[in-house]
């Protein structure tokens, strides 16, 4: 299997604080990788490095074998990397449909007419169709989270979809609905990296789990092995083993 994404010895510091510390891992095509770790472990920073919102101080990032370490964020989106934000960042003055249209037209470099139908389908998949004509600013938290995911999907993430705490703050029922959507996406072959605190939701989808602490990769492997390891239980769950 080819690797969609590889990080090799990637590091990033903000002043004296090393937020990403010599991180290396690879994500094979079609895999769903979960990332867990305590608050401040550097999970969202890792996403920002992958999308190009931040540039690493050292190390190398590749998509499908192509070196993108210095490629701007805008170009990476067009290459097929979509991301959702931890705190939803909708275009509040646009309707839900227009939010998707913008993402699809610019993320895929196409005309609006060519992507309208796709956008409608994504809205249906994410259960947002009934809100299509409402301003994004008027959405509830669940719908904002759905919109985050829908918009990331609309950019055409045929390479990689990054989800940042998409299930946080949702009720159990809402969470189930979202998991179903993500599972369906994954079943279509989309490669996914998902940062999440809601472990049961995460573990019901991902094949691999990566644990991050103080910017370092503590472990990577099958979810049950990782969850069972003493190190992870100590660091992440704060349990005395």
């Amino acid at each position: 299997m080819t690797d969609v994404l590889t990080l090799t010895n990637v590091s990033k510091s903000f002043g004296a604080l090393k937020v990403t510390d010599d991180v290396s891992f690879a994500v094979p095509k079609g895999q769903a990788l979960g990332i867990i770790g305590p608050n401040g472990a550097g999970k969202s920073t890792l996403f920002n490095l992958i999308t190009g919102n931040f540039l690493p101080d050292a190390g190398k990032i590749t998509f499908l074998g192509q070196d993108v370490t210095r490629v701007p964020a805008m170009t990476r989106v067009r290459m097929g990397v979509g991301r959702s934000f931890q705190i939803p960042q909708p275009f509040e003055g646009l309707t839900v449909f227009e939010n998707l249209l913008t993402a699809a037209a610019f993320g895929q470099g196409k005309h609006e007419g060519e992507v309208e139908a796709d956008c409608a389908l994504i809205l249906q998949d994410t259960e947002l169709l009934r809100r299509a004509n409402d301003l994004a600013g008027s959405l509830s938290l669940l719908d904002r989270k759905r919109l985050e995911m829908a918009r990331a999907m609309a950019t055409g993430p045929d390479l990689l979809l990054l989800l940042d705490e998409i299930a946080g703050g949702l009720t159990e029922g809402e969470c189930q609905a979202l998991v179903a959507t993500i599972k369906a996406l994954h079943a279509k072959g989309t490669t996914i990296i998902w940062i999440e605190h809601v472990l049961h939701a995460l573990n019901s989808v991902v094949e691999q789990l990566l644990v991050l602490d103080f910017g370092k990769v503590i472990g990577i492997g099958a979810p049950d092995e990782i969850m069972a390891s003493r190190e992870v239980r100590e660091i992440y769950l704060g349990l005395e083993a």
Partner: peptide, 23 residues
């Protein structure tokens, strides 16, 4: 035009606009 959408997106959220590929 297409640029009108991009302008509105930029006005609403600069960061997110760049993240969906708006130049």
């Amino acid at each position: 035009s297409r640029n009108g959408l991009a302008l509105a997106a930029l006005r609403d959220n600069d960061n997110a606009a760049r993240s969906v590929g708006v130049d």
